[in-house]
């Protein structure tokens, strides 16, 4: 059963088709949820709520674009809603400060070389970023949004989005460097 047939059956609330759709896309969507949430429990909740939303709103899918893209947007939107709800908690922990001058100094080796790092570890690195950095990083890198768009969606200013992305990159760079360094030691 291809996606279009699956969607038609799901629009008729066919429970078997819904199950097939879940089994086909849930692992991929779980990865999206994990990328946006630090805790696995939150990711599970997002996955659950996301599929409920998918099955209740599937009637609005016109069938013109990619179904996977539509599905993914639902999960990303849900993750962003969750972030906005939780934002108050994070407000004092991070990150709405602007970048200090010394932070702006780009390290000599500014590459983010993740080629030799397993996917699970890359995902963990992103998940371990502070919530604000993580959200901006995900939106900029994976959803390909501009800082202006990110600022609008998150209700922050553009400069704050840039600074958080910048800090996210720096944190990742340090983590990558530490992983690669450990790997070299282990090889030696």
């Amino acid at each position: 059963m291809d996606d279009s047939q699956l969607v038609i059956a799901c629009k008729k609330q066919d429970r078997n088709a819904q199950k097939v759709l879940y089994e086909r896309y849930a692992p991929m969507m779980m990865a999206v949820c994990l990328r946006y949430s630090g805790e696995e429990e939150t990711a599970r909740d997002l996955l659950h709520d996301g599929f409920i939303r998918v099955f209740t709103q599937i009637g609005s899918f016109s069938g013109k674009g990619s179904f996977e893209g539509w599905l993914r947007r639902i999960f990303v939107n849900l993750a962003l809603e969750n972030y906005r709800k939780e934002k108050q908690k994070y407000r004092f922990m991070e990150e709405y400060s602007y970048i200090n001058a010394d932070e702006l100094e780009t390290p000599a080796d500014d590459a983010l070389d993740i080629e030799n790092i397993p996917r699970e570890e890359v995902l963990d690195m992103i998940r371990n970023l502070p919530p604000g950095y993580r959200t901006v990083f995900n939106m900029y890198i994976f959803e390909e949004m501009s800082h202006k768009e990110i600022a609008e969606v998150l209700g922050i200013n553009e400069a704050a989005s840039r600074s958080q992305f910048f800090r996210a990159k720096n944190m990742l760079r340090k983590k990558i460097s530490a992983i690669l360094h450990n790997d070299k030691r282990q090889v030696q």
Partner: peptide, 13 residues
């Protein structure tokens, strides 16, 4: 780099 790394990545359910 990040997109290609995590493209199609599936996490356990």
């Amino acid at each position: 780099e990040f997109q290609s790394k995590l493209s199609g990545f599936e996490a356990p359910l």
